[in-house]
Design a protein around this nucleic acid. Structure first.
Lengths: 200, 200
DNA sequence: TATTGAACAAATCGTTAAATAGTTCAGAGA
DNA sequence: TCTCTGAACTATTTAACGATTTGTTCAATA
């Protein structure tokens, strides 16, 4: 890894921590520069402005999240297993990433139900392809009902965002875990082309 | 109907219109009193304060919505028909109620994904019983999978709120209609105890 | 290419006074 | 007794002000 990439990694790591701790407004570029042992002027050699620093930092964190889920999904073969793994790994990742969780709580607009005002549209779009590929595989293998892939992908992504909002923006931790698992199985049954009569 | 109830109906009607037109902040107590042909002082004979006027007005509007859906559901017998009617009637009602729609757009906090900060908790709770009764009937008649009724009810209500936010708070009208219909059928398949292999 | 530090610009904050809007209440019809 | 008025009162919002903090630029430098 070249030295500039190293600098960026350090930069994103430091600013993620500060943004998680103080939020966007309370974190000054001076704070970030201090922690990096440089002057704030020099920070502008790496990013356009404070907003750009924030966007790049969050995007970097969301990409790691996506990659982690994608990796777990790729270890499975069966589309149902992939679907379940995707859902569970997504939750597991955020559950074990305190800083990202804190940032979501401090900045609810990171997860919006409106694609048109989504500042992280590209990374979210790429997260949606994970869903899309699983649906296509499941339908191709005649395991899944031939749903409208585009709209059902959007729907599942919206549900995922809804859960994140419910659980981490509003902290409705109590029942949302059980609700999540019930919903997962309900959606899997809704996807399957046939399913037997085997209640849990 | 006694004259005081009449006054209340008129009051809610007038203030719903004004709140829809100008929003909470821009609507003054004076405005409402003027439209009712009374002084603002006298308004305090009917409501505790401005906030109370707003809450009572919205609650009244949401109750009408609920009642309309409940009535439509009660005309059906089959739990699947009831479920589908509930979903479609809910959308149909808001689609044809411009003032309520305008209020939702002006005050996004009316529909929250967090029960604990829901100012209209009671009326929303009573709306949830419609879902709950359908689920109980479906399971009782061995048509529905024996899901965890409480959590699945919460889940469906959350999806309903999510759609309202997507469609009316963020105005993402474009794809959300198709998404809604796809989701409806997916959820019905997820509920059914068995379903045949009959893709649309 | 990467960095500094000073200079500059933009945004925020704390305070103030004036205007507006919300609320109370004694008293007056019906 | 129930409904209402209108004036008095209180609370909130708005605009303006300078002071301060913070974000951004850039010529000089290693």
């Amino acid at each position: 890894m070249n030295p500039k990439d190293m600098k960026y990694r350090e930069l994103f790591s430091v600013s993620l921590e500060l943004f998680a701790l103080f939020g966007y407004k309370k974190t000054t570029v001076q704070d970030v520069a201090d922690r990096l042992g440089m002057t704030k002027g020099n920070l502008y050699f790496y990013v356009k402005n404070k907003q750009d620093l924030y966007l790049k930092t969050i995007t970097h964190a969301l990409s790691s999240w996506r990659d982690s889920v994608k990796q777990a999904v790729d270890r499975e073969n069966d589309p149902v297993d992939k679907f379940r793994t995707m859902a569970l790994k997504s939750v597991d990742y955020i559950e074990n990433n305190t800083m990202l969780r804190q940032i979501l709580m401090k900045d609810p607009s990171i997860f919006t139900l409106s694609p048109s005002e989504d500042r992280f549209y590209d990374i979210n779009q790429s997260a949606m392809t994970i869903i899309q590929e699983i649906l296509n595989q499941g339908i191709g293998e005649k395991r899944f009902y031939p749903v409208d892939v585009e709209h059902v992908t959007q729907y599942f992504f919206s549900i995922y965002v809804m859960f994140l909002i419910k659980t981490y923006v509003k902290s409705d931790t109590s029942s949302s875990r059980t609700m999540f698992l019930e919903a997962l199985e309900l959606n899997i049954r809704g996807l399957l082309l046939t399913h037997g009569v085997t209640p849990a």
